[in-house]
């Protein structure tokens, strides 16, 4: 039996699961938007602007979900500053939850700046202060912000998996592949979100076609990493003999990866495939979180 079965469940459930999903999606969307900002064509701008909006809203929602989940929400700032020695910085480079807190803050900052820049570009900012900030994020500054923010976005998509690996819980700490899996899933769900939302901002078929072909490749990467994850679990895989295993197999592998891949290959409607990718991405977090959360050390010890 893995030694991880004797640890206690942290009760990371109904705020953290949506956070893992939204954070991954927002990080992935920002990364793709930044990539198109740097290397795309002018007609990719609607996708770029949508990606920045998704990232900004996602970052704000992520911060809210993380704060609400705390046992003492008003002490959220203790993760950033030393409470007894303010304003000294609180940072542990070896603790994913510590560098993740800073990551979310920086991600939010860059995502909001990019989103304001994009909105200023469209002339959609009414408030003078916001218009002034948005007006500064243009040209080279906008690219620099997007470049750094896009890399932070990739980090946000994946650090949650590293956070789970750096515990002593069953499944999470029994494999080093969760971070890689969440990166692939985050980028894939980010692409799916852009496929669904960017047509409203005037995305061209050419942009959507690139997103679709990239999403198919990301899904293949996700599937390969998911297989590596399952193989690495070894005897711990017996925990999947449960409703969570069924959800992983049917919800994630079949509906979330294989079905959209088939739809991409057959050039079926992009929106349908994108919706399935989003459902699969959410179920991936749900299954990996709750399969572990459900294991109680007391019941393991008494053989129940």
């Amino acid at each position: 039996m893995s030694d991880t079965f004797f640890s206690g469940a942290p009760h990371w459930t109904w705020f953290i699961i949506p956070y893992f999903f939204i954070g991954g999606l927002a990080g992935g969307a920002y990364f793709l938007a930044a990539l198109l900002d740097w290397f795309g064509r002018p007609d990719d701008r609607p996708v770029v602007r949508t990606g920045y909006d998704v990232a900004a809203v996602g970052a704000i929602l992520s911060g809210l979900l993380l704060t609400i989940d705390l046992g003492q929400p008003l002490r959220f700032w203790h993760m950033l500053f030393q409470s007894a020695n303010f304003p000294a910085i609180m940072f542990k480079g070896w603790s994913p939850i510590s560098f993740g807190a800073w990551g979310i803050l920086l991600f939010g900052l860059f995502a909001v700046l990019s989103a304001l820049g994009a909105r200023a570009e469209e002339g959609r900012l009414q408030m003078p202060a916001l218009r002034a900030v948005g007006g500064m994020v243009r040209g080279g500054v906008a690219k620099l912000v997007a470049g750094i923010g896009g890399l932070i976005g990739l980090f946000i998509a994946g650090y949650t998996g590293i956070l789970l690996s750096v515990t002593n819980r069953p499944i999470w700490a029994d494999s080093p592949w969760l971070g890689a899996l969440f990166v692939a899933s985050g980028v894939s769900t980010g692409a799916a979100t852009l496929i669904l939302l960017s047509p409203r901002r005037g995305a061209t078929e050419r942009s959507l076609g690139w997103l679709s072909s990239f999403d198919a490749r990301a899904l293949v990467v996700e599937l390969i990493v998911l297989i590596a994850f399952i193989v690495s679990l070894g005897s711990v895989n017996r925990v999947w003999v449960s409703v969570w295993g069924l959800l992983l197999l049917v919800g994630v592998v079949w509906f979330g990866i294989l079905a959209p891949l088939r739809m991409h290959a057959r050039r079926q409607p992009l929106a349908s495939a994108a919706k399935l990718v989003l459902v699969g991405g959410f179920l991936l977090r749900l299954a990996t979180m709750l399969a572990s959360e459900g294991i109680d050390r007391y019941r393991v010890a008494v053989g129940l």
Binding site: S7, A9, P10, W12, R75, I97, L163, T167
Partner: peptide
């Protein structure tokens, strides 16, 4: 000082 993030719960073997 603790804000109830529960990282320590999952970390304790």
């Amino acid at each position: 000082v603790c804000n109830g993030c529960r990282a320590c719960i999952a970390a304790c073997p």
